[in-house]
Design a protein around this nucleic acid. Sequence first.
DNA 1: TCTTTTCTGTTGTAAAAACAACAGACTTGT
DNA 2: ACAAGTCTGTTGTTTTTACAACAGAAAAGA
Lengths: 224, 224
Amino acid sequence: MKKYIPILKRTQLFSGVGEEEIGAMLNCLQARLCAYKKSEYVLRQGEHTDTLMVLAEGKLHIQRDDYWGNRSIINMVSVGEMFGEAYVAPESGALMNDVLAVEDSIVILFDVKRIVTVCPTACRFHSMVVQNLFFAISEKNRQLVQKLTFMSKRTTREKLIAYLSEEAKRSNSSEFSIPFNRQQLADYLSVDRSAMSNELCKMRDEGMLEFEKNRFVLHDDVTE
Amino acid sequence: MKKYIPILKRTQLFSGVGEEEIGAMLNCLQARLCAYKKSEYVLRQGEHTDTLMVLAEGKLHIQRDDYWGNRSIINMVSVGEMFGEAYVAPESGALMNDVLAVEDSIVILFDVKRIVTVCPTACRFHSMVVQNLFFAISEKNRQLVQKLTFMSKRTTREKLIAYLSEEAKRSNSSEFSIPFNRQQLADYLSVDRSAMSNELCKMRDEGMLEFEKNRFVLHDDVTE
DNA sequence: TCTTTTCTGTTGTAAAAACAACAGACTTGT
DNA sequence: ACAAGTCTGTTGTTTTTACAACAGAAAAGA
């Protein structure tokens, strides 16, 4: 557990909190570790949970398969990011999604009720963590809205442009990598993989962009 | 301002807080009122804000018009619901959406920094409001994910079924009203209005559902 | 190294959506 | 009561997507 304190220190949740204080809070928040192999499920749709989780190693997808087997990737979780925060409210009900480890992963679980309900003066940095948590959820909120703006586009091409432009903006460069392979990107944007692949190649042939594997270069006429 | 205390008392944000305490907190949180006529913008995309807002009267849409004039309704705000919570973090950047009054509306603004950053022992119920705020944002998060699951469906029919089933579930009845007219529903689901209208009528002719204006009745084969 | 599996691009066909244009019903405001 | 405007359903055409099937390249595993 101790070995992950440096990772936790760099997370948004513990931003501004020193390593010693984090060590103390791990007890206070009853932190536990859980390991998952690639392709294992961390959580499954329909389950109940009331823990806040932070990814310490690996990579996760928050996703949902519907009755017909169509997969929709809601979001991606990278090291240092948290998940489960939407289900800590008492009446939040069952999980709407699966959480899948797409790489071998290590997850840190926190008893979030202790973060929010225990008097914040209990430990010195508690109120700072509450504030961080608040900001982190707000940001996740904006991420979801961002994703909605990709998905609200009518054509596959528009969805691709919206998504790729955002990734370019996020990396401050017209050249960047995406965290998905083709099938995953299609699942993320909720389009057909082959149709998307087709569209990407058309855009490349029209000179809008270049790509190789998951590395993309947008040309000026795309970014505006 | 005082006249809205009963409304505030019934909001998720002030749940569990008495009317006198709310009155006291209005000062503490520097609450202000703002009125908007139907079709006026409460906030515009690109602006900056750091206030938390609660709708006291009327109805709002959180939406976005793209370059080509396609409107996408991200969410709807009813009386007692809050909005703006995603932009209170210091580095949250410019608003991604417009907020439009679809009816004459009254909005209450709060200086949210005082909710989150001021020592929660300042006033007695402060920590309860912090907790309420946390739960409220969590719930909004789930709402957005819910919407993503509608939008991730590939066909208009599937989107309609996903949305209408959810509304039925929410009202615990196969008969319910929706808060949108046809154009607004199409904007909410990001589909073409006439195609959607067409699809709705086909579904009605196939006996899946009935409707009249914004009142719907789902038949058994839809809900399962 | 060789085999197996995964990933990506390609094509053709069928299905669905977008778009445009219009008519009748219903509202709203004067 | 009337006129103007809005809302809803309807139809036909064009565009786009979904789906299925396949082949070569790349990666993973034995």
